[in-house]
């Protein structure tokens, strides 16, 4: 069954049709990559899925519930985790506290005025950090972490509410090439073992073709191709978009 179903999504900025009638779906446990050249509409499309942007037309459904019109925080409560292209963590908190925040929020305990926050769900946070290989850095401040490690922390935070859909906007952007495959492998393993649907955008084609189960290709706001990595690799339209008509 499809976890995420996107139907006829469109968005225009002034006269520019940034996203034009895009439809696709992601199944539980599946890794779907959204690719396309710069300006293809990936980020716009992404921001409509996570509630930061309202679409002009079309619908986004998660497990049969309409997401369009919901705030990001409401979408998260339904079981959708997110990581950002430029990492967003709480810099004045430790790695563990960042995860504890998500756990506290998930249990709706963030209004509490008196218990000590750092003592809440400590073991659970450490377990999540263990899954992304950050257990030994739990006490460090997020402000001083290396970028690749911040990405791992974000992943742990995203897993805290046991999401059934994970939206990852350029999960490996800004990382060294070696780290990229490692992080994506980690995300893929976690998703498959927990049956999480994953939608990610990515510029690194090596990462995309190694880890994605399926790929959708956007160009000038339109979905021009979709299928397995092998299908997409062979698709002449994709070649044209990426390599220019020279090779067509």
């Amino acid at each position: 069954m499809s976890a995420l179903v996107v139907k006829n999504l469109s968005k225009a900025y002034g006269g520019v049709q940034a996203v034009d009638d895009v439809s696709f779906s992601v199944a539980a446990g599946e890794l779907l990559a959204m690719i396309g050249p710069n300006g293809a509409g990936k980020t716009t499309c992404f921001n409509m899925l996570n509630g930061q942007l309202a679409p002009d037309t079309g619908s986004v459904e998660f497990e049969g519930r309409r997401l369009t019109g919901l705030a990001p925080r409401a979408i998260w409560r339904l079981g959708v985790g997110r990581t950002f292209q430029i990492t967003a963590t709480f810099a004045s908190m430790t790695v563990r506290e960042n995860v504890q925040m998500a756990l506290l929020s998930h249990r709706r305990r963030l209004g509490a005025l008196f218990p000590v926050a750092a003592h809440q769900y400590r073991d659970e946070a450490d377990a999540l950090l263990g899954r992304v290989g950050m257990r030994d850095q739990a006490e460090r401040a997020c402000a001083v972490l290396a970028y690749g490690n911040l990405k791992r922390v974000e992943l742990a935070v995203a897993l805290a509410n046991t999401p059934r859909l994970l939206l990852m906007d350029e999960p490996t952007a800004g990382m060294a090439p070696g780290e990229r495959n490692e992080l994506m492998q980690l995300a893929a393993d976690l998703a498959r073992s927990s049956n999480i649907a994953v939608l990610f955008t990515e510029h690194d084609m090596d990462v995309v073709f190694t880890h994605a189960d399926r790929i959708i290709v956007l160009a000038q706001g339109r979905l021009i191709a979709q299928g397995t990595p092998a299908d997409v690799r062979a698709d002449p339209r994709v070649r044209e978009v990426y390599l220019g008509s020279l090779h067509a």
Binding site: A71, P72, F84, T89, M93, Q100, L104, H106, L110, A160
Partner: peptide, 23 residues
Amino acid sequence: YAPFGYALRAGRDSPLRADAIGI
């Protein structure tokens, strides 16, 4: 030191992330 105070700091540190974890 309580969760509420942490939620305040979360909103200051990164409103984007705070919103994305339900705050």
